[in-house]
Amino acid sequence: MTADIDKETLIYTIIANIPAGKVASYGQVATLAGYPQNSRLVGRLLKVMPNDSVIPWHRVVNSQGKISFPEGSDKYQQQRQKLLLEGVLFKKDKVNMREYRWE
């Protein structure tokens, strides 16, 4: 197994452990995986994740608490709806990271 595969597995495992009703930022996931300068890698891994994956990708937002998909896009609406169904509330277009951030 290569180091890259280990890194990917670790990142996916961390995302899989974000509980319902909580969110984590890309940078937070990268830091928890031991790669604090790799938030873009987290985004790339989420982008290539299979559509049938059970990993809760929707619980990862940017550091400002915003959904990274273009506002109004299908993916933006899907992520927002999944978070709302878990009780994560938005103020305008942001999640309150103090309240909903996974610790």
Results as ranks from 00 to 15, higher is better:
residue 1 M to Y: 11
residue 28 Q to Y: 10
residue 19 P to V: 15
residue 74 D to C: 10
residue 11 I to K: 00
residue 72 G to Q: 01
residue 78 Q to S: 10
residue 71 E to P: 05
residue 22 K to T: 04
residue 11 I to M: 06
residue 4 D to M: 06
residue 96 N to W: 02
residue 77 Q to F: 04
residue 3 A to V: 09
residue 26 Y to S: 08
residue 41 L to Q: 05
residue 29 V to Y: 03
residue 84 L to S: 08
residue 81 Q to Y: 06
residue 23 V to A: 09
residue 12 Y to W: 10
residue 11 I to Y: 00
residue 62 N to F: 08
residue 69 F to S: 14
residue 2 T to V: 06
residue 66 K to Y: 07
residue 56 P to V: 12
residue 41 L to D: 02
residue 100 Y to R: 04
residue 86 E to H: 09
residue 100 Y to D: 02
residue 36 P to T: 05
residue 89 L to N: 12
residue 18 I to S: 02
residue 44 R to M: 07
residue 38 N to E: 15
residue 87 G to S: 07
residue 12 Y to E: 07
residue 20 A to T: 06
residue 80 R to P: 02
residue 74 D to Y: 13
residue 43 G to P: 12
residue 77 Q to C: 07
residue 46 L to F: 05
residue 21 G to D: 07
residue 85 L to Y: 05
residue 40 R to D: 12
residue 22 K to F: 02
residue 26 Y to H: 09
residue 46 L to Q: 08
residue 29 V to T: 03
residue 59 R to T: 02
residue 13 T to K: 11
residue 13 T to Y: 00
residue 45 L to D: 00
residue 79 Q to D: 05
residue 90 F to K: 01
residue 56 P to H: 12
residue 87 G to P: 06
residue 15 I to Y: 14
residue 25 S to V: 04
residue 47 K to M: 14
residue 50 P to H: 02
residue 35 Y to K: 06
residue 86 E to S: 14
residue 103 E to S: 14
residue 87 G to L: 08
residue 1 M to A: 14
residue 50 P to W: 03
residue 56 P to K: 10
residue 1 M to E: 13
residue 26 Y to A: 09
residue 59 R to F: 01
residue 35 Y to T: 04
residue 69 F to W: 09
residue 92 K to Y: 03
residue 89 L to V: 10
residue 65 G to V: 04
residue 26 Y to K: 04
residue 59 R to W: 01
residue 34 G to C: 03
residue 33 A to K: 00
residue 91 K to M: 01
residue 13 T to E: 12
residue 78 Q to Y: 08
residue 50 P to R: 04
residue 83 L to W: 06
